[in-house]
Nucleic acid binder design. Sequence first.
DNA 1: GTTCTAACA
DNA 2: TGTTAGAA
Length: 145
Amino acid sequence: MEAKKIFHDVFQNIEVGIGEVSKTVGVSQRQLRYWEEKGYIKPVDDNQSGVRRYTLSTLYLIIFIKTQLDQGFTLSAAFERSKDIKVKSKIVRNFFEHTFNDVTITDADKAYGEIDLGELLVQDGQKYHFKGVVDEHGRYLKIDK
DNA sequence: GTTCTAACA
DNA sequence: TGTTAGAA
């Protein structure tokens, strides 16, 4: 089986109970049930037990909402932001999966490097390489011949 | 001991 | 949202 699919299956099958989520994330069980009632989060539906279990992706959503709440946003605003982030993440992931060919490490300890974003063909027939650079100056774009 | 629903401070 | 009661 393809590694990507295995990861997806494993990721999707990891579940956590409401007690553990509550203790770990710092959100009360009451809140979790309320958020569910509001339609913001959804426990895995297959069990007949009536006991709530959350997938990892739901856990991440819960953590995101909690973080937004701590920063002063309302619950509904936090949820709207989560939808926004979800779409943006998907776009960014898609872009990078299909564009960067290689990452060159320039400093492993500081996590500095150059991301080759692909070739750029200009009118004069010259080929350039578009690079995303992360170093002591921050992050910026660079064009190499 | 944990989780659930419902109700009330 | 917190808390509590009574049941699973």
